[in-house]
Design a protein around this nucleic acid. Structure first.
Lengths: 314, 314
DNA sequence: GCCAACTAGGACGGTTCTGGTCCTAGATGA
DNA sequence: TCATCTAGGACCAGAACCGTCCTAGTTGGC
């Protein structure tokens, strides 16, 4: 609590409580003079965190939206809420965001104090009390272990149940964890079988990082190619056909890095997009997430579903 | 980017990516010497963020779980994922956590850059494509505006639709925003009617803080009393009867600050709890969130639902 | 229309912190 | 064994920090 650094963090956390603080209040809390408080405020502003000040009587300081995210300083229960929220996003989130959600969740889990970790686990179980849902769901704990091991390039031991229901112990070097539609796949080098394999995350149990470093490396394009056929095996049941009011390049950029995107072709100034999925809900979300105008050519179920959403969201 | 403070934040954000970083890598990234990196690491450790180091060749630093949450440094897409996750937690989350979720969401929304804000909104709409659900849902944006105004003690103008469907403009001083079961209520002083009122959040539209300070103040116990009868009017349809394997005081503490908790009475070393709600799902979650052993006396639907959960979660 | 209560920011000077350049010690894997 | 890491002490010049003065400008209330 001595240096100016931790004081700045405390100051930031106070300002994040979304109320105004007068200089005197802050000075008292931080145990420094008014002058130093203002110098600290200046410093935060220089660091890019915009702080508004109300002049005059009853004035004060307030953190407002800027151009970049300030560090989030969370209380215990807030951290738990964030962790639980991220579980739902990562496991059954929006396309394009499953990945970000999992990254954030891993980040948070890594530094989550153990007393909170336990609460997240029990509350997480409690939160699963709704909607069985057709989607095969994955335990978020398993996902975070895999994500951490992948990022850290550590070997993993785990149990895997293959397509025919046989469970076997595996020793792998994780290469990439990727969401294809609403399923998570781990692409890894299988040390026993001495070859690259992909594993459906919902069939993995009890994974743990061994601490040993992974050695094998696979270029990203090979990872994608490797998943292509998992992709095909899924036999999606709905097929959307849409004209996006987006230039081809923009459309391709927004769809970048996702599998199961189907065909993307230029169509005048617009882009034609044909994509398939298991549910119209998923197609609808994918489409809305693109955040652009579009003309839907089919199928009818998707059109109805979009109309229903439109009606609900105003 | 000059001072040691922003360097420490950068260092923290690097260490949060859940991989190990060698001193040289960090030195290069932060543009300082090895020695300084180690001094920075020491400083972080002194501030209470535990950093593990692997000795020897291929060693490196890694942030591990400690006793308190380090500031979360999020990328753009991660921030969006967190915001979306929190929306679901706050709007239809677990009892005891709706409040924390909303606090965190308000915190984050307040400092969310506008370019991200827009994306959160469209993606949020896309995420609502599932399950109409019986619960009356609230727009998270409305909740955050109300929460910020309440925390900041600012007056609010809004439109309100009363029980009979009549919409009127209101000018109020928000006092407290509280979740009773799965509904949010705003307790506020109505400036036109010159009296305290409570408003169901899902009937509020287009709220905006005027910037003027609120003056009236109501003690917390009065707020609760004021909501009591909203509470009664709800006519819950399920009534749980449970013996909690918890001392009376502990049970009361865990149930503290929540309305609709029904009766809590001591029963030997345990505690008897009778509570009602609209859905068995809610009762189940409430019960599981207590994280204790219990004996269920009824009703049968709840017993079945708990069995189903048990089966699903292993 | 004045005063109290705020933010904003300059000048000064003693004290502390910072961060590079030296070291040496100990752990680890190839 | 050696290369490659972390750990940490000693030194020191320069930078920063922070309290104690100031003055200026803004706002709301009485």
């Amino acid at each position: 609590m001595a240096g100016p650094t931790s004081r700045l963090l405390t100051l930031l956390s106070l300002l994040q409580t979304s109320r105004t603080w007068s200089g005197s209040e802050l000075a008292e809390r931080l145990d420094v003079t008014h002058r130093t408080v203002r110098r600290d405020i200046d410093r935060l502003r220089e660091m890019g965190y915009p702080i508004d000040a109300d002049l005059g009587a009853h004035g004060g300081y307030r953190l407002v939206a800027g151009t970049s995210m300030p560090p989030l300083l969370l209380e215990d229960d807030e951290a738990i809420a964030v962790a639980l929220g991220l579980r739902t996003v990562a496991v059954q989130g929006l396309p394009e965001l499953e990945d970000a959600g999992l990254r954030a969740l891993t980040k948070l889990s890594q530094s989550l104090p153990s007393r909170l970790r336990h609460r997240v686990r029990t509350l997480g179980a409690a939160a699963m009390t709704r909607r069985p849902g057709p989607e095969t769901s994955v335990d978020p704990d398993i996902l975070t272990v895999l994500a951490a091991a992948t990022a850290n390039r550590e070997r993993v031991r785990m149990a895997y149940e293959d397509r025919s229901g046989v469970v076997s112990a595996r020793h792998v070097e994780p290469q990439r964890l990727v969401a294809v539609r609403q399923r998570w796949y781990l692409v890894a080098f299988d040390l026993d079988r001495d070859d690259w394999r992909h594993f459906r995350a919902d069939r993995i149990s009890a994974p743990r990082a061994t601490g040993a470093r992974a050695r094998e490396l696979m270029p990203d394009e090979d990872v994608l190619a490797h998943l292509e056929h998992a992709e095909r095996a899924m036999a999606p049941t709905h097929r959307a056909d849409v004209t996006l009011r987006l230039p081809f390049d923009t459309a391709r950029a927004r769809l970048r890095d996702h599998l199961g995107d189907g065909e993307i072709t230029p169509e005048g100034d617009d882009t034609r997009w044909r994509s398939s999925a298991d549910t119209v809900e998923w197609l609808a979300r994918r489409l809305l997430a693109l955040d652009c105008h579009f003309v839907l050519h089919g199928p009818q179920e998707l059109r109805e579903h979009l109309a229903w959403i439109h009606e609900r969201t105003g």
